[in-house]
Simulated scan of single mutants.
Amino acid sequence: MQKFRHYKGGIYELVCEATQESDLSPVIVYRSHNGTVWTRPKDVFFEIIELNGVHVPRFAPIEIE
Rank of each mutant, 00 (worst) to 15 (best):
V29L: 07
T39E: 15
V56Q: 08
V37D: 05
I28T: 13
E63K: 10
I48C: 07
P26T: 13
I28K: 05
I48E: 07
W38C: 07
P57R: 03
P57E: 07
R5T: 06
R40K: 10
I48Y: 09
L14K: 14
S22W: 04
T36Q: 13
R5D: 03
G35C: 12
R5K: 15
D43N: 12
L51E: 13
E50H: 01
K3N: 05
P26D: 13
G9P: 02
D43E: 11
F45K: 08
G9Y: 01
I48T: 14
D43V: 12
A60F: 04
N52E: 03
H33G: 03
V56S: 10
A18T: 06
R5Y: 03
F45V: 07
F59K: 06
I62W: 09
F45E: 00
R58E: 05
E50C: 03
K3P: 02
K3I: 05
P26K: 15
F4G: 03
E50W: 00
N52S: 05
I49S: 02
N34Q: 10
R31K: 15
E13V: 08
E50Q: 00
T36A: 12
N34T: 15
F59C: 07
I48P: 01
V37G: 05
V29M: 07
S25W: 03
Q2D: 09
I64Y: 10
I64G: 12
A60D: 04
Q2N: 12
P57M: 07
L14P: 08
L51F: 11
V44C: 07
F4C: 00
F45W: 03
Q20Y: 05
D23C: 05
I49M: 02
V54M: 09
E50V: 01
P57C: 06
R5P: 04
V56I: 15
P57T: 02
P61A: 03
I48D: 09
M1Q: 14
K42M: 09
I64S: 14
S22F: 04
R31F: 06
E47R: 14
T36E: 10
H33Q: 10
G53I: 00
D43S: 13
I11V: 15
P61F: 01
I28Q: 06
G10T: 04
V29H: 05
E21V: 15
R58A: 07
V54G: 04
N34L: 15
S22Q: 08
T19D: 05
I11C: 13
P41Q: 14
V44P: 07
G35S: 12
S32Y: 09
A60H: 00
G53N: 05
E13P: 07
N34E: 13
V29G: 08
V44D: 14
P57Y: 03
L24G: 06
S32A: 13
P57V: 02
R31A: 02
I49Q: 02
I48R: 08
I64L: 15
T39F: 15
E63D: 13
E47F: 08
P41Y: 10
E50I: 04
I48K: 13
E17Q: 10
R31N: 09
F4R: 01
G53T: 03
E65R: 15
G35K: 14
V44Q: 14
